[in-house]
Design a protein around this nucleic acid. Structure first.
Lengths: 156, 156
DNA sequence: GTATCCGCTGGACAATCTGATCAGTGACCC
DNA sequence: GGGTCACTGATCAGATTGTCCAGCGGATAC
Protein backbone atom coordinates (compact mmCIF):
# COMPACT_ATOMS: atom_id res chain seq x y z
CA UNK A 1 0.00 0.00 0.00
CA UNK A 2 2.55 2.61 0.90
CA UNK A 3 3.93 4.10 -2.27
CA UNK A 4 7.37 5.54 -1.86
CA UNK A 5 9.16 7.96 -4.07
CA UNK A 6 10.90 5.34 -6.18
CA UNK A 7 7.59 3.59 -6.78
CA UNK A 8 6.16 6.87 -7.92
CA UNK A 9 8.98 7.51 -10.34
CA UNK A 10 8.64 4.00 -11.63
CA UNK A 11 4.94 4.38 -12.34
CA UNK A 12 5.45 7.76 -13.93
CA UNK A 13 8.17 6.41 -16.16
CA UNK A 14 5.99 3.49 -17.15
CA UNK A 15 3.11 5.80 -17.89
CA UNK A 16 5.22 8.00 -20.13
CA UNK A 17 7.01 5.23 -21.99
CA UNK A 18 5.11 2.03 -21.49
CA UNK A 19 7.13 -0.02 -23.91
CA UNK A 20 10.53 0.35 -22.31
CA UNK A 21 11.92 -2.71 -20.58
CA UNK A 22 13.09 -3.34 -17.08
CA UNK A 23 16.70 -2.79 -17.98
CA UNK A 24 16.09 0.60 -19.53
CA UNK A 25 13.98 1.60 -16.55
CA UNK A 26 16.76 0.69 -14.16
CA UNK A 27 19.10 2.88 -16.17
CA UNK A 28 16.72 5.82 -16.17
CA UNK A 29 15.97 5.55 -12.50
CA UNK A 30 19.58 4.96 -11.52
CA UNK A 31 18.95 1.77 -9.62
CA UNK A 32 19.83 -1.87 -10.17
CA UNK A 33 17.75 -3.97 -12.50
CA UNK A 34 16.84 -6.38 -9.73
CA UNK A 35 15.42 -3.51 -7.72
CA UNK A 36 13.17 -2.41 -10.53
CA UNK A 37 12.03 -5.95 -11.06
CA UNK A 38 11.30 -6.42 -7.39
CA UNK A 39 9.42 -3.15 -7.17
CA UNK A 40 7.35 -3.92 -10.20
CA UNK A 41 6.50 -7.35 -8.87
CA UNK A 42 5.49 -5.84 -5.58
CA UNK A 43 3.37 -3.13 -7.16
CA UNK A 44 1.52 -5.57 -9.35
CA UNK A 45 0.97 -8.18 -6.66
CA UNK A 46 -0.08 -5.38 -4.33
CA UNK A 47 -2.74 -4.44 -6.78
CA UNK A 48 -1.42 -0.91 -7.10
CA UNK A 49 -0.75 -1.66 -10.74
CA UNK A 50 -3.71 -3.60 -11.97
CA UNK A 51 -2.31 -4.38 -15.38
CA UNK A 52 -0.87 -3.13 -18.61
CA UNK A 53 -3.75 -3.77 -20.91
CA UNK A 54 -4.02 -1.73 -24.08
CA UNK A 55 -6.04 1.44 -23.74
CA UNK A 56 -8.50 1.30 -26.57
CA UNK A 57 -10.21 4.41 -27.82
CA UNK A 58 -13.93 3.77 -28.37
CA UNK A 59 -14.08 6.65 -30.81
CA UNK A 60 -11.50 5.02 -33.04
CA UNK A 61 -13.53 1.86 -32.87
CA UNK A 62 -16.51 3.69 -34.31
CA UNK A 63 -18.19 4.75 -31.08
CA UNK A 64 -17.53 8.47 -30.86
CA UNK A 65 -20.51 9.33 -28.64
CA UNK A 66 -20.18 9.00 -24.88
CA UNK A 67 -22.94 9.50 -22.37
CA UNK A 68 -23.59 9.04 -18.69
CA UNK A 69 -26.89 7.62 -17.60
CA UNK A 70 -28.31 7.82 -14.10
CA UNK A 71 -30.66 4.96 -13.41
CA UNK A 72 -33.34 4.44 -10.82
CA UNK A 73 -33.87 0.83 -9.90
CA UNK A 74 -36.90 -0.91 -8.57
CA UNK A 75 -36.34 -2.14 -5.03
CA UNK A 76 -34.68 -5.54 -4.92
CA UNK A 77 -33.93 -5.68 -8.63
CA UNK A 78 -30.35 -4.52 -8.27
CA UNK A 79 -28.69 -7.83 -9.04
CA UNK A 80 -30.78 -8.43 -12.13
CA UNK A 81 -30.09 -4.99 -13.47
CA UNK A 82 -26.38 -5.43 -12.96
CA UNK A 83 -26.38 -8.68 -14.87
CA UNK A 84 -28.40 -7.12 -17.63
CA UNK A 85 -26.11 -4.12 -18.00
CA UNK A 86 -23.00 -6.27 -17.82
CA UNK A 87 -24.29 -7.98 -20.92
CA UNK A 88 -24.51 -4.80 -22.96
CA UNK A 89 -21.20 -4.08 -24.69
CA UNK A 90 -21.92 -0.37 -24.95
CA UNK A 91 -22.01 -0.13 -21.16
CA UNK A 92 -18.39 0.60 -20.41
CA UNK A 93 -18.73 0.95 -16.71
CA UNK A 94 -21.35 0.79 -14.00
CA UNK A 95 -21.46 2.10 -10.48
CA UNK A 96 -23.99 1.98 -7.73
CA UNK A 97 -24.20 5.34 -6.03
CA UNK A 98 -25.76 7.29 -3.25
CA UNK A 99 -27.99 10.22 -4.05
CA UNK A 100 -30.86 10.75 -6.43
CA UNK A 101 -30.12 7.87 -8.77
CA UNK A 102 -29.23 4.35 -7.80
CA UNK A 103 -26.75 3.61 -10.54
CA UNK A 104 -24.54 5.54 -12.88
CA UNK A 105 -23.28 4.06 -16.09
CA UNK A 106 -21.06 5.18 -18.91
CA UNK A 107 -22.33 4.45 -22.39
CA UNK A 108 -20.92 4.77 -25.85
CA UNK A 109 -22.71 4.77 -29.18
CA UNK A 110 -21.99 5.09 -32.87
CA UNK A 111 -23.93 8.35 -33.19
CA UNK A 112 -26.48 10.39 -31.38
CA UNK A 113 -29.12 8.43 -33.20
CA UNK A 114 -27.49 5.19 -32.21
CA UNK A 115 -27.46 6.38 -28.62
CA UNK A 116 -31.21 6.05 -28.65
CA UNK A 117 -30.83 2.38 -29.50
CA UNK A 118 -28.32 1.91 -26.69
CA UNK A 119 -30.49 3.68 -24.17
CA UNK A 120 -33.46 1.60 -25.20
CA UNK A 121 -31.31 -1.45 -24.75
CA UNK A 122 -30.26 -0.30 -21.31
CA UNK A 123 -33.62 0.81 -19.96
CA UNK A 124 -35.61 -1.85 -21.74
CA UNK A 125 -35.43 -3.99 -18.68
CA UNK A 126 -38.00 -4.49 -16.08
CA UNK A 127 -36.05 -3.45 -13.01
CA UNK A 128 -35.21 0.00 -14.30
CA UNK A 129 -37.71 2.63 -13.34
CA UNK A 130 -36.21 5.71 -14.88
CA UNK A 131 -33.09 6.85 -16.67
CA UNK A 132 -31.70 10.30 -17.21
CA UNK A 133 -28.89 10.72 -19.68
CA UNK A 134 -26.23 13.35 -20.13
CA UNK A 135 -24.34 13.33 -23.40
CA UNK A 136 -20.66 14.14 -23.20
CA UNK A 137 -19.65 17.02 -25.43
CA UNK A 138 -16.05 17.53 -24.53
CA UNK A 139 -13.54 15.76 -22.37
CA UNK A 140 -11.20 18.41 -21.02
CA UNK A 141 -9.57 16.01 -18.57
CA UNK A 142 -9.33 12.45 -19.89
CA UNK A 143 -9.08 9.69 -17.33
CA UNK A 144 -5.73 10.10 -15.63
CA UNK A 145 -3.89 8.90 -12.60
CA UNK A 146 -0.49 10.52 -12.82
CA UNK A 147 -1.17 13.62 -10.76
CA UNK A 148 -2.55 11.40 -8.03
CA UNK A 149 0.49 9.15 -8.16
CA UNK A 150 2.68 12.19 -7.86
CA UNK A 151 0.76 13.37 -4.86
CA UNK A 152 0.71 9.95 -3.24
CA UNK A 153 4.41 9.35 -3.71
CA UNK A 154 5.55 12.89 -3.17
CA UNK A 155 4.35 13.81 0.29
CA UNK A 156 4.74 10.33 1.75
CA UNK B 1 -10.72 2.83 -38.24
CA UNK B 2 -12.13 -0.43 -39.49
CA UNK B 3 -11.27 -3.14 -37.03
CA UNK B 4 -11.14 -6.55 -38.58
CA UNK B 5 -11.31 -9.87 -36.89
CA UNK B 6 -7.58 -10.33 -36.52
CA UNK B 7 -7.31 -6.88 -34.96
CA UNK B 8 -9.98 -7.87 -32.52
CA UNK B 9 -8.25 -11.06 -31.53
CA UNK B 10 -5.02 -9.18 -31.17
CA UNK B 11 -6.53 -6.64 -28.80
CA UNK B 12 -8.28 -9.31 -26.81
CA UNK B 13 -5.10 -11.28 -26.46
CA UNK B 14 -3.23 -8.20 -25.37
CA UNK B 15 -5.92 -7.37 -22.87
CA UNK B 16 -5.80 -10.83 -21.36
CA UNK B 17 -2.04 -11.21 -21.22
CA UNK B 18 -0.49 -7.80 -21.60
CA UNK B 19 3.04 -8.90 -20.94
CA UNK B 20 3.41 -11.36 -23.77
CA UNK B 21 5.63 -10.33 -26.64
CA UNK B 22 5.06 -10.02 -30.33
CA UNK B 23 6.52 -13.43 -31.04
CA UNK B 24 4.28 -15.19 -28.57
CA UNK B 25 1.27 -13.32 -29.93
CA UNK B 26 2.05 -14.43 -33.44
CA UNK B 27 2.21 -18.02 -32.21
CA UNK B 28 -1.11 -17.75 -30.41
CA UNK B 29 -2.85 -16.08 -33.29
CA UNK B 30 -1.35 -18.38 -35.86
CA UNK B 31 0.05 -15.63 -38.07
CA UNK B 32 3.53 -14.44 -38.91
CA UNK B 33 5.38 -12.23 -36.52
CA UNK B 34 5.67 -9.46 -39.10
CA UNK B 35 1.92 -9.41 -39.43
CA UNK B 36 1.39 -8.95 -35.73
CA UNK B 37 3.97 -6.21 -35.67
CA UNK B 38 2.39 -4.44 -38.62
CA UNK B 39 -1.09 -4.71 -37.13
CA UNK B 40 0.07 -3.39 -33.81
CA UNK B 41 1.84 -0.47 -35.43
CA UNK B 42 -1.25 0.31 -37.43
CA UNK B 43 -3.55 0.09 -34.44
CA UNK B 44 -1.41 2.36 -32.34
CA UNK B 45 -0.80 4.94 -35.05
CA UNK B 46 -4.49 4.79 -35.88
CA UNK B 47 -5.22 5.77 -32.34
CA UNK B 48 -7.31 2.68 -31.76
CA UNK B 49 -4.79 1.66 -29.15
CA UNK B 50 -3.92 4.76 -27.24
CA UNK B 51 -1.19 3.21 -25.18
CA UNK B 52 -0.13 0.57 -22.74
CA UNK B 53 0.26 2.62 -19.62
CA UNK B 54 -0.03 0.89 -16.28
CA UNK B 55 -3.53 0.80 -14.86
CA UNK B 56 -3.15 2.12 -11.36
CA UNK B 57 -5.76 1.41 -8.73
CA UNK B 58 -6.55 4.56 -6.76
CA UNK B 59 -7.77 2.45 -3.86
CA UNK B 60 -4.40 0.75 -3.52
CA UNK B 61 -2.83 4.18 -3.55
CA UNK B 62 -4.85 5.13 -0.51
CA UNK B 63 -7.84 6.69 -2.24
CA UNK B 64 -10.61 4.13 -1.81
CA UNK B 65 -13.52 6.56 -2.13
CA UNK B 66 -14.83 7.46 -5.57
CA UNK B 67 -17.51 9.98 -6.33
CA UNK B 68 -19.09 11.67 -9.29
CA UNK B 69 -19.84 15.36 -9.09
CA UNK B 70 -22.17 17.25 -11.38
CA UNK B 71 -21.19 20.89 -11.62
CA UNK B 72 -23.06 23.95 -12.75
CA UNK B 73 -20.86 26.62 -14.20
CA UNK B 74 -21.36 30.34 -14.41
CA UNK B 75 -21.75 31.48 -18.00
CA UNK B 76 -18.46 32.09 -19.71
CA UNK B 77 -16.36 30.63 -16.93
CA UNK B 78 -15.92 27.23 -18.55
CA UNK B 79 -12.29 27.60 -19.50
CA UNK B 80 -11.28 28.81 -16.06
CA UNK B 81 -13.11 25.99 -14.36
CA UNK B 82 -11.46 23.44 -16.59
CA UNK B 83 -8.03 24.78 -15.80
CA UNK B 84 -8.83 24.81 -12.12
CA UNK B 85 -10.08 21.22 -12.09
CA UNK B 86 -7.19 20.00 -14.21
CA UNK B 87 -4.94 21.21 -11.41
CA UNK B 88 -6.63 19.07 -8.75
CA UNK B 89 -5.02 15.61 -8.60
CA UNK B 90 -8.13 14.05 -7.11
CA UNK B 91 -10.08 14.95 -10.24
CA UNK B 92 -9.49 11.86 -12.32
CA UNK B 93 -11.64 12.83 -15.24
CA UNK B 94 -13.79 15.72 -16.40
CA UNK B 95 -16.47 15.97 -19.05
CA UNK B 96 -18.69 18.73 -20.26
CA UNK B 97 -22.18 17.46 -20.76
CA UNK B 98 -25.63 18.30 -21.93
CA UNK B 99 -28.49 18.19 -19.49
CA UNK B 100 -29.01 19.53 -16.01
CA UNK B 101 -25.37 19.98 -15.09
CA UNK B 102 -22.67 21.52 -17.20
CA UNK B 103 -19.82 19.27 -16.20
CA UNK B 104 -19.37 15.87 -14.71
CA UNK B 105 -16.22 14.87 -12.93
CA UNK B 106 -14.90 11.79 -11.23
CA UNK B 107 -13.26 12.31 -7.89
CA UNK B 108 -11.36 10.15 -5.48
CA UNK B 109 -10.59 10.72 -1.82
CA UNK B 110 -8.85 9.03 1.09
CA UNK B 111 -12.08 8.65 3.06
CA UNK B 112 -15.59 9.97 3.20
CA UNK B 113 -14.33 12.70 5.45
CA UNK B 114 -11.53 13.49 3.03
CA UNK B 115 -14.08 13.70 0.27
CA UNK B 116 -15.35 16.84 1.91
CA UNK B 117 -11.92 18.39 1.51
CA UNK B 118 -11.78 17.37 -2.14
CA UNK B 119 -15.22 18.74 -2.84
CA UNK B 120 -14.34 21.99 -1.15
CA UNK B 121 -11.25 22.11 -3.30
CA UNK B 122 -13.29 21.50 -6.41
CA UNK B 123 -16.16 23.87 -5.75
CA UNK B 124 -14.10 26.49 -4.00
CA UNK B 125 -13.71 28.32 -7.24
CA UNK B 126 -15.56 31.29 -8.43
CA UNK B 127 -16.99 29.96 -11.67
CA UNK B 128 -18.77 27.02 -10.06
CA UNK B 129 -22.31 27.77 -9.06
CA UNK B 130 -23.42 24.48 -7.66
CA UNK B 131 -22.21 20.92 -7.26
CA UNK B 132 -24.10 17.76 -6.55
CA UNK B 133 -22.16 14.68 -5.61
CA UNK B 134 -22.92 10.99 -5.77
CA UNK B 135 -20.65 8.67 -3.84
CA UNK B 136 -19.85 5.37 -5.47
CA UNK B 137 -20.70 2.39 -3.32
CA UNK B 138 -20.02 -0.50 -5.59
CA UNK B 139 -18.57 -0.95 -9.03
CA UNK B 140 -20.31 -3.94 -10.57
CA UNK B 141 -18.84 -3.25 -14.01
CA UNK B 142 -15.35 -1.78 -13.89
CA UNK B 143 -14.24 0.22 -16.87
CA UNK B 144 -13.97 -2.22 -19.73
CA UNK B 145 -13.61 -2.25 -23.46
CA UNK B 146 -13.39 -5.88 -24.41
CA UNK B 147 -17.06 -6.53 -25.10
CA UNK B 148 -17.10 -3.53 -27.37
CA UNK B 149 -14.01 -4.70 -29.20
CA UNK B 150 -15.65 -8.06 -29.67
CA UNK B 151 -18.72 -6.43 -31.09
CA UNK B 152 -16.76 -4.05 -33.30
CA UNK B 153 -14.59 -6.78 -34.74
CA UNK B 154 -17.48 -9.03 -35.55
CA UNK B 155 -17.36 -11.50 -32.66
CA UNK B 156 -14.66 -13.81 -31.57
C1' DG C 1 -5.53 -9.56 -69.99
C1' DT C 2 -1.75 -7.62 -67.72
C1' DA C 3 0.71 -4.64 -64.55
C1' DT C 4 0.79 -2.94 -59.98
C1' DC C 5 -0.11 -2.41 -55.19
C1' DC C 6 -0.81 -4.41 -50.74
C1' DG C 7 -0.77 -7.55 -47.01
C1' DC C 8 0.90 -11.88 -45.38
C1' DT C 9 4.40 -15.56 -44.99
C1' DG C 10 8.59 -17.70 -43.54
C1' DG C 11 13.20 -17.01 -42.98
C1' DA C 12 17.51 -14.80 -41.72
C1' DC C 13 20.72 -11.69 -38.83
C1' DA C 14 22.99 -9.24 -34.98
C1' DA C 15 21.91 -6.86 -30.88
C1' DT C 16 19.47 -6.73 -26.92
C1' DC C 17 16.76 -8.11 -23.12
C1' DT C 18 14.91 -11.47 -19.83
C1' DG C 19 14.67 -14.56 -15.84
C1' DA C 20 17.35 -16.57 -12.58
C1' DT C 21 20.91 -16.68 -9.39
C1' DC C 22 24.81 -15.21 -6.46
C1' DA C 23 27.72 -12.91 -2.85
C1' DG C 24 28.42 -8.54 -0.59
C1' DT C 25 26.74 -4.33 1.87
C1' DG C 26 24.22 -1.28 4.76
C1' DA C 27 19.94 -0.34 7.60
C1' DC C 28 16.90 -1.78 10.95
C1' DC C 29 14.83 -4.71 14.77
C1' DC C 30 14.79 -8.09 18.67
C1' DG D 1 25.21 -10.01 18.48
C1' DG D 2 22.29 -12.17 15.25
C1' DG D 3 18.59 -12.02 11.99
C1' DT D 4 15.94 -10.03 8.37
C1' DC D 5 15.38 -7.01 4.61
C1' DA D 6 16.31 -4.25 0.47
C1' DC D 7 19.63 -2.92 -2.79
C1' DT D 8 23.83 -3.51 -5.64
C1' DG D 9 26.61 -5.31 -9.27
C1' DA D 10 27.64 -9.32 -11.59
C1' DT D 11 27.11 -13.65 -14.13
C1' DC D 12 24.75 -17.05 -17.36
C1' DA D 13 22.08 -19.30 -21.08
C1' DG D 14 18.12 -18.67 -23.63
C1' DA D 15 14.61 -15.99 -25.71
C1' DT D 16 12.99 -11.86 -27.99
C1' DT D 17 13.41 -7.72 -30.70
C1' DG D 18 14.08 -4.81 -34.72
C1' DT D 19 15.05 -5.13 -39.27
C1' DC D 20 15.84 -6.84 -43.39
C1' DC D 21 14.52 -9.99 -47.52
C1' DA D 22 12.12 -12.79 -51.46
C1' DG D 23 8.02 -15.00 -52.60
C1' DC D 24 3.00 -15.46 -52.97
C1' DG D 25 -1.73 -14.62 -53.58
C1' DG D 26 -5.82 -11.23 -54.03
C1' DA D 27 -7.58 -6.99 -55.43
C1' DT D 28 -7.41 -3.09 -58.31
C1' DA D 29 -6.20 -0.06 -62.26
C1' DC D 30 -5.28 0.41 -67.01
Amino acid sequence: MPIDHLDGRLILLLAREPRIGVLEMSRRLGVARGTVQARLDRLTSNGVIRGFGPQVDPAALGYPVTAFATLQIRQGQGADVRAHLAGVPEVLELHTTTGGGDMLCRLVARSNADLQRVIDLVVGFDGIVRASTAIVMENPVPLRIIPLVEQASGDT
